[in-house]
Nucleic acid binder design. Sequence first.
DNA 1: CTGGGATTGCGAACGGTTTTCAGTATGATG
DNA 2: CATCATACTGAAAACCGTTCGCAATCCCAG
Lengths: 148, 148
Amino acid sequence: MTSRLEALCMEKGLKMTGQRRVISQVLSEADDHPDVEEVHRRAAQIDPRISIATVYRTMRLLEDAQVIERVDLGDGRARYEEATADHHHHLIDTRTGRIIEFASPELEAMKERIARELGYKIVGHRLEIYGVPLDEADDDARDEEKRP
Amino acid sequence: MTSRLEALCMEKGLKMTGQRRVISQVLSEADDHPDVEEVHRRAAQIDPRISIATVYRTMRLLEDAQVIERVDLGDGRARYEEATADHHHHLIDTRTGRIIEFASPELEAMKERIARELGYKIVGHRLEIYGVPLDEADDDARDEEKRP
DNA sequence: CTGGGATTGCGAACGGTTTTCAGTATGATG
DNA sequence: CATCATACTGAAAACCGTTCGCAATCCCAG
C-alpha cells in the first residue's frame, strides 16, 4: 500500500527508495507535529536500519519539494506537518504542549493590509499563540492571590 | 556617563561589573536587533577583554531582568532588543534583512478573540511577516514572466 | 581595606543539524 | 533481464550557536 505522501513524492518525480517510502508512510500517518528525532523513532519501528542522517536529508528533500512544511515553534528543533493549500497558524498549549491549528481569513487580510501600508509585499509570515486553557487560567488567578 | 540600560540595571539591583557596563552601553546605543556575536563584536571595540561567554551570560541576565527581549527571527540565532512596554511585531525585508517594527491594536484584539474562541487565554505570542518592498516586488513579476 | 560570594575567561561539552566518504541501491538503458 | 552511471545511505566527524565547569579575578558590604 503506497501512502498518501509516497504517491505525492512519485508525482513530483522523486526517486523512491525504501527509506523514503517508510518516512513517507510515517508522515502520512502522523496527525501531530513530530520533530526529526520522533520521525526517526517511528520510522525505525518499521525498518530499524534507517539512520537519523537519512531522516534529516529526507525531511529537507520533502520540504524543498513542498510535500511537507517546517514549523518552527521556538523550542530549538524543527517540527513538520503535511503541506496544505491553506495558510494556518498554531496555538500552543503551554501546559501540555498540545498544538491547535487555526485559520482566520480576517487575520490574513489584516496582515496583508499592514504589510501594504509599510510598503511591502508579503512573501511569508508566521504567527504563534501560546496559551493556557481558559478554565485552568482560573487556577493561575487563584495562585496569584495565594502568593504573599 | 552611565548608559540608559546601565541605570535600569542598577535600579533592578544587578551587580554592575565593567563588562556589564560595556554591554549595557552597547545595547543602549543599538537601534537594530543584534545577535550575541554582534554585541560581542561591538563590546570588544570598547574593551577587547570581554569574552563571548560573558556576553551570553549577560544577555540572559538582562533578559531575565526584563531589561531586554529576545527576538527569534527564525535564522537560528537569538537576537535582542530593548524591552518596551508595548507589544510589537517585526516585518523582515527578505532582500536586505532590514527589520521594521510595527504594532496593531486591531491585530492584538483579533488574536485575543481567536484564542478565546478556542478556549484559551494568551500567555504569549509572536508574529513575523517576511516581505519584499512593493516596488521591487514588480521585478519578481517580471522575472516570473521571463522564466520559460 | 579586607573577605568572601558573585563574576569572568577559557576551553570543553552540548544538542540539533549538516557534511564527508566509502559502500549500496535505484531505475533508465540496451 | 543484466548493466551501469548516478543518486542515495549509514556512520562518524564537523558544525554552529549556546551552555557549563573550573580556577582566577572582581565587586562591594562591612
